[in-house]
Design a protein around this nucleic acid. Structure first.
Lengths: 198, 198
DNA sequence: ATAAAAGATTGCAGAGACTGCAAACATCTG
DNA sequence: CAGATGTTTGCAGTCTCTGCAATCTTTTAT
């Protein structure tokens, strides 16, 4: 099943990494907007055309992997016992993600720093999160066996993502509390609002 | 105080309107992405350079006025009696906006239609909403007399905006329920989660 | 009424992100 | 080793958006 990746795969990953590190270094050195695709391509030793075979936009270099990470929420959600309340299950799923964030906080802080100070990157991030909201809302709808006419799944998904975003924002500058704790606090705060919902 | 606007002001407003209607017509006819600034400029009888004196980006033509509308939330929030709970006050403020939306739903539907089907416009919208979230969170913080170390104002702001967004999404395709009702439902749903907070 | 100030419009040149295409190149498969 | 398949590259081109300087319009002060 899991074949050892061939030369082609290895090279590809290697190039992707080279682009990413080169780009991040330049972003931090010169700023996101002042760094051009050409700059990145030169630093990563590829042609500028090739850049777009690896990343759809410049913004995605900053968000790339951390975007994929949140998509785990839906998987985790499906693994939760069906008899636990939806909001609780959501809380567990997000706690896992928060843990990932906490573990890799060194790399994430660099990315967040750029994201929070660059409008286009921030916007792209929100756009990706909106996609996750859709996915989470859909998963919740299925889980709660509700028709698509009910607003509750979407509201829950939006609240959960909002809790996550709020937590990250407070987590970033301070480091007083751990991210999982913050997320947990937000979820328990909102819990009463979703009490009656299975 | 309120001087009758001079010729200059009148012309400016007139040009802005011309750009907006021309652009919206083209967006609906050919699609947002397929419409170029040049197309809009030609249709509105201006030079393409002038377009950017009126709108910072193509996306803002779709979002323009309705963006400003939500900024009313903070004002409305300040007018609420200080002894009413924060979440209740927020609910009233958003209800006013929802009413505006409902009244002008014909124009808004056109804009939402384009927004929901065009990634860049949707992203821009989320970016603007993030700005409102900041403003609302700040206003709440002041109202609740909390230090800036507390996460609650931000969580409330995020939840409120989330409720608004969720409501709009359900309101758009159906028309079964009025937007203010939907918003009200979401706010009462979440109310229990913010009960203990003044 | 007229001249000066202030503001708006325009064209031009240019940077920069991103796309499609076709040729060259590398890797994999049999 | 040859053919299939995937990757890189250069090139030409489109489009958004910016700065600048010239021109034209409206306002204001004389």
């Amino acid at each position: 099943m899991t074949q050892e990746p061939g030369l082609r795969e290895r090279k590809k990953k290697q190039t992707a990494d080279r682009i990413e590190t080169a780009a991040m270094d330049l972003f931090e050195k010169d700023g996101f907007d002042a760094t051009t695709i050409d700059d990145i391509a030169t630093a990563a030793d590829i042609s500028s055309r090739t850049f777009f075979h690896y990343f759809p936009t410049k913004e995605d270099v900053v968000l790339g992997d951390y975007a994929a990470r949140l998509s785990r929420v839906t998987e985790s959600l499906k693994e939760q016992p069906v008899d636990s309340p939806a909001w609780t299950a959501l809380g567990v799923a997000f706690a896992e993600v928060a843990n990932d964030y906490e573990v890799q906080h060194q790399q994430l802080r660099r990315r967040f720093q750029i994201m929070m100070t660059t409008g286009s990157v921030f916007a792209r991030n929100l756009q990706l999160q909106a996609g996750w909201e859709d996915a989470v809302a859909e998963a919740l709808e299925e889980r709660m066996k509700l028709g698509s006419g009910d607003i509750l799944p979407r509201l829950m998904a939006a609240s959960a993502l909002g809790a996550m975003r709020s937590s990250v924002r407070h987590w970033l500058p301070t480091t007083n509390q751990s991210l999982p704790d913050l997320v947990q606090d937000c979820f328990t705060q909102l819990e009463a609002g979703f009490k009656p919902a299975l």
